[in-house]
Design a protein around this nucleic acid. Structure first.
Length: 403
DNA sequence: TCTGGGGTCCTAGGACCC
DNA sequence: TCTGGGGTCCTAGGACCC
């Protein structure tokens, strides 16, 4: 039986949600109606466009470009900061509405969902359900979505990306030549800035060109990726809607530094802060990790990553910090200007599966106690409540049995 | 004042074992 | 003394997504 799939994509999600929140808080302007963007902080060198209004789009502003460039294109652009807590609430409200239609919902990202309606149509037409969802979201949640209607995830996702905003598009097999093959090859899902120029050199400019290209040649040139792109161009995709919540496979934090750092001491301070953040999140997930990776990006944007498998799994801040410091020293040449530093824990397992081993010494028990105490405070008063200095104080208090 | 932060997946090469 | 090749694990790097 053919699958019945919907892809829901919130139009300008961060900007729309910020607009609604501002209106709720008494703002007299709707930032959806003016040239506006959601962006980072330029002074902290995190200045890129995360979302844009239609008016900003008309100025030629693209998501992902620098705010500096956005300002050049539109001098009266209004810039607002992002707030993930608020976005999560709106994302949840959308999800809750969608649960009225099917149990099989995949939350693909904070602003996108796939719905498997195959066994939930009860005689209705898929497109009618799409229009109903569209209407209800607009009326009840006050923002708009694009909905792609198709027989697999790939085509549904491609369809939702057609004309925006507030639209429902179908992309069934017989519509592929007319609706998809005339598009630029860069529009195809999974074809990014590195692959597109290579395809251009092969004379492949549209998705149709790719669909008709020699499959074996593509496999020879691009391996597995070559097969995938040929299949996608032909609308072939048999992947399932992953409606079960998946455990993360890695947890990472990274920061672009306000100014380049050139000493190991300063980098180690950053690594400590990152170790706290990452392990805090790890513990909240009730997971342990056994691979630690440290990433640094120099001022030329060249990334270097070193990782180490521990041979045991941990969620302990002090342990992760020690490994991370070693990895950092291995790859950092003193004096090199670093603009970004990151820490990633992978090889994750659920905490219940923790192996008892000789690593669980008295010392690690003490470290666990420290983590637990700090986490409790962070839960209660917010993550920022414990600064590094504050943390040292708490550790001393634990040492002297005052907690 | 060009270029965020959080993810997933794939590939290639070296070490090591049989 | 000289020698092959497959399998697995690990690390580094890179492509792509939102």
């Amino acid at each position: 039986m053919e699958k019945q799939i919907l892809h829901i994509d919130v139009n300008n999600a961060f900007l729309s949600w910020t607009a609604i929140e501002m209106l709720k808080n008494g703002s007299d302007i709707d930032i959806r109606d003016i040239p506006a963007i959601i962006g980072g902080d330029e002074t902290k060198r995190s200045g890129i466009v995360l979302a844009k209004s239609m008016k900003a789009k008309e100025c030629g502003i693209h998501t992902g470009e620098s705010i500096y460039h956005a300002k050049m294109k539109c001098s009266n652009i209004k810039i607002y900061p992002s707030n993930y807590k608020i976005y999560k609430n709106y994302s949840d409200s959308l999800y809750n509405l969608l649960t009225n239609y099917t149990d099989k919902i995949e939350r693909y990202s904070i602003d996108e969902c796939f719905l498997d309606m195959t066994k939930y149509l009860r005689g209705r037409k898929l497109i009618d359900v799409a229009y109903e969802i569209s209407k209800r979201v607009k009326e009840e949640l006050k923002f708009t979505v694009n909905i792609g209607v198709a027989n697999n995830k790939l085509l549904a996702k491609m369809a939702s990306d057609f004309q925006k905003p507030d639209r429902v598009h179908t992309l069934f097999k017989n519509e592929i030549p007319n609706k998809m093959w005339n598009l630029q090859v860069s529009e195809l899902f999974m074809l990014g800035r590195k692959t597109v120029p290579k395809l251009y050199n092969m004379g492949i400019k549209t998705i149709g060109d790719l669909a008709k290209a020699d499959k074996q040649l593509l496999i020879k040139k691009f391996g597995k990726h070559g097969l995938k792109m040929w299949e996608y161009a032909n609308g072939i995709d048999d992947s399932e809607v992953n409606y079960k919540e998946e455990k993360p496979k890695c947890i990472s934090n990274e920061v672009t530094l306000p100014v380049d750092i050139t000493t190991i001491e300063r980098l180690e301070e950053m690594i400590l802060a990152l170790s706290e953040q990452v392990t805090y999140r790890l513990r909240n997930h009730k997971m342990l990790g056994e691979v630690v990776a440290v990433q640094i990006r120099n001022k030329e944007f060249k990334d270097t990553i070193h990782q180490r498998k521990l041979g045991f799994a941990t969620d302990n801040t002090a342990q992760i910090y020690e490994i991370a410091k070693k990895l950092l020293r291995e790859m950092y040449k003193e004096g090199t200007p670093i603009r970004l530093i990151g820490l990633r824990i992978s090889g994750l397992i659920e905490k219940e599966q923790e192996q008892l081993s000789f690593f669980n010494t008295e010392k690690t028990e003490k470290q666990k106690k420290i983590d637990k105490t700090l986490d409790t405070i962070k839960h209660k008063y917010g993550y920022q409540s414990i600064t590094r200095a504050g943390e040292m104080k708490v550790k001393r208090m634990i040492k002297w049995n005052k907690l």
